[in-house]
Computed example of a mutant assay.
Amino acid sequence: MRLIRRLAAFAALMVAIVVAYLSLMPVDEGPAPVFSDKVNHFLAYAGLAAPLTLALHPKRWLSAVIVATVYGIGLEFAQAMGDAGREGSVLDALANFLGALAGAALIRFSAGVRP
């Protein structure tokens, strides 16, 4: 289990780096969206919270949601303050939270953790 948690922590770190890069790069340099903006946010933060939940432990799934959500809010503030042509958005932050909640819950419930 220790190796899995370490690999999950590494995966979460890599996802966090990719999410930050894609969130802060200039709009005109970014890849074309695969889905709608909100769906992309949802999927990105589900993909961040899932390995983060494994790294922390499925019993601490709510902590993973909080960490991923605070990270997302921080990136929204960075977008609002930056000059890359991006805007911080409350709706993006909400999509980030819902994605983090879904990703963490998926791991928590698939791991069979009891309350």
Rank of each mutant, 00 (worst) to 15 (best):
L54H: 01
I4V: 14
S36F: 09
A78Y: 04
F10T: 14
F35V: 12
P115H: 07
R2F: 14
F10A: 15
S63K: 01
E29R: 11
M25A: 15
Q79R: 01
V65K: 01
S23T: 09
A12F: 08
G99H: 07
V113M: 09
T53Y: 01
R86W: 07
A68C: 08
N40A: 14
L3T: 12
P51I: 10
E76P: 09
R5S: 15
G74A: 01
G30F: 00
A9M: 06
A104L: 06
V113I: 15
V113H: 06
M14Q: 13
P31N: 12
V70C: 09
A80E: 15
A84F: 01
L3F: 07
V27F: 04
E76V: 03
F109V: 10
L3K: 13
A55T: 12
A11I: 11
V27R: 14
Y21G: 02
F35R: 06
G74D: 03
V67S: 05
T53H: 04
A49G: 11
I66Y: 00
H41D: 04
D28Q: 14
A95M: 08
V39H: 00
L54F: 09
V90R: 05
A55Q: 09
S110V: 07
F97N: 08
G47K: 07
H41C: 06
R60Q: 04
T69K: 05
G88I: 04
R60L: 08
L62A: 12
L94K: 01
L13H: 05
G47T: 08
A93K: 09
A32E: 13
L62G: 01
P51W: 08
P51T: 11
E76N: 07
L106Q: 02
P33S: 14
V39F: 05
S63E: 02
A104S: 15
G82I: 04
A32D: 10
W61K: 00
L13V: 13
M1I: 00
L54N: 02
A32H: 12
A111W: 12
S23N: 05
S89G: 08
L62T: 11
E76S: 05
A68S: 15
G47F: 02
K38L: 14
E29C: 02
L98K: 03
M25Q: 13
G112F: 02
A95N: 05
L98I: 11
A100G: 12
V67Y: 06
R2Q: 13
R86T: 13
G103I: 03
A102S: 13
R60K: 12
V34R: 12
R86V: 12
L98R: 02
A111S: 15
V67T: 10
R114C: 01
G103K: 03
E76D: 06
A105M: 09
V65G: 02
A46P: 03
A16E: 05
Q79A: 07
L43A: 13
G30H: 06
M81K: 07
P26F: 01
S89H: 03
M14A: 15
T69F: 15
I107V: 15
E76C: 05
D92L: 08
A105C: 06
P33M: 15
F35Y: 11
A44D: 02
S36M: 10
G72D: 09
M25P: 04
N96A: 10
R86P: 08
R5A: 15
Y71L: 11
A68L: 10
K59M: 00
G30P: 02
I4T: 13
D37L: 09
N40W: 00
A104Y: 04
A16P: 05
Y71K: 03
M25S: 14
Y21Q: 01
